[in-house]
Simulated scan of single mutants.
Amino acid sequence: MKIWLYNGCMKLLSKSGIGKAYEHQKSALEQKGIEYTSKFSRNFNIVQLNTIFPDSVLVALLAKLMRKRVIYYAHSTMEDFKNSFKGSNLLAGIFKKWIEFCYNLGDLIITPTEYSKQLLEEYAVSKKIIFLTNGIDLDFYQRDAESKATFREKYHFSKDDKIIISAGHYIERKGIEDFAELAARMPEYQFVWFGYTNLKLVPDKIRGIVETKLPNLHFPGYITSEELREAYSGSDLFLFLTHEETEGIVLLEALAMKIPLLIRDIPIYRNWLMDRKQVYKGTELAEFESLIHQIVQGQALSLAEEGYTVAKERSISNVGNVLLGIYIKLLHADNPGYEGMDNRIKPARIVRQ
């Protein structure tokens, strides 16, 4: 069994959640010893696609001509395309038609959560859809005192500063407007938003927010995973105000880092993140403001261990176990006598290219 983990145009998305999801898939395959390649090889069994660019469509069609299996990862929905870039709402209907076309090229569709699966089941997608988390690297995301000091020194924060961070593109959907408004309302705290989007691509109101000159509102831009790990270690709260997601890898990272987490109460998180059990949730600015104060001042109960349990369930190792089963079943889908062959097929060596 050999997987073609297609990486065409992935450089364009290397700083996005899809880019991280791709890296997590590589790690999952490596941990389970599943043979894979990132380049075309005639002897692959399954091609795994993560993007909806035209090159991925061509690869899917090529795989079908070669009678190979196609797994399409559905990272995108019309709902999370809206309120993102200039003209995204006008193009949302066309975008939906395009992703329906792309996903229908797959023999199997994998999407990160039950919520995104339910959305896609309402689309004109005729193929089987399952949900599987993008996963989280628990070995990498670990909090330590040295990283905390490094972060605060790098950004000139004192040991007494209360720091609230978030991460994502500069887009309305991510909740950047409310993040900036809370910074204006709470000048006693430092608000830091990590991530980057070319300001030519976003509406003027979002550009205005990023260019705001509030002394306690900071937009350092894109940082590496190592730097973000330092930020998690050195801050007092991760504030995730997104209005729509298919999962939210940064949320999993925050859970793994055992940092207090305050999120917007939206449908995707209602079935697997419970308010005041693993995270704190809010719905409007006044509520967010009150909860921020309670959390950073130590007046709210710590939910770190309960939140970490959620991250543990979504470890890359667990993802690898599930993927191995998916591959085997997909390859034997046409065999009516196939019964539990999982234990008789051993993972092969990894081909890194």
Rank of each mutant, 00 (worst) to 15 (best):
10 M>G: 01
45 N>Q: 14
28 A>G: 03
53 F>I: 09
29 L>Y: 11
42 R>A: 13
22 Y>W: 11
28 A>I: 01
26 K>F: 01
47 V>E: 07
19 G>C: 02
51 T>G: 14
17 G>F: 06
35 E>R: 13
15 K>M: 14
38 S>M: 08
26 K>T: 04
43 N>W: 03
10 M>K: 01
21 A>V: 10
11 K>H: 14
32 K>Q: 15
49 L>Y: 11
37 T>V: 06
30 E>S: 10
53 F>P: 08
25 Q>R: 13
27 S>A: 12
49 L>A: 04
40 F>S: 00
12 L>I: 09
43 N>R: 08
17 G>V: 06
44 F>H: 09
47 V>S: 00
30 E>Y: 06
12 L>V: 08
35 E>N: 15
26 K>Y: 06
25 Q>E: 13
51 T>D: 07
38 S>I: 12
18 I>C: 04
30 E>M: 12
14 S>G: 07
49 L>E: 00
20 K>R: 11
30 E>P: 06
42 R>P: 12
38 S>F: 12
20 K>S: 15
33 G>I: 02
24 H>N: 15
28 A>T: 01
53 F>N: 12
29 L>T: 01
41 S>D: 08
24 H>S: 11
19 G>H: 00
50 N>S: 13
39 K>G: 05
43 N>C: 07
19 G>I: 05
50 N>V: 04
28 A>M: 05
29 L>G: 01
48 Q>R: 13
19 G>D: 02
52 I>M: 10
43 N>L: 07
38 S>E: 15
17 G>Q: 08
26 K>A: 00
40 F>Q: 03
41 S>E: 11
33 G>C: 10
46 I>V: 13
53 F>S: 10
27 S>H: 07
40 F>K: 00
34 I>K: 00
21 A>R: 03
34 I>A: 05
23 E>P: 03
52 I>F: 11
52 I>S: 08
36 Y>S: 02
41 S>P: 05
48 Q>G: 07
27 S>G: 12
23 E>K: 12
39 K>I: 10
47 V>N: 00
50 N>L: 08
24 H>M: 09
51 T>V: 10
24 H>K: 11
33 G>R: 03
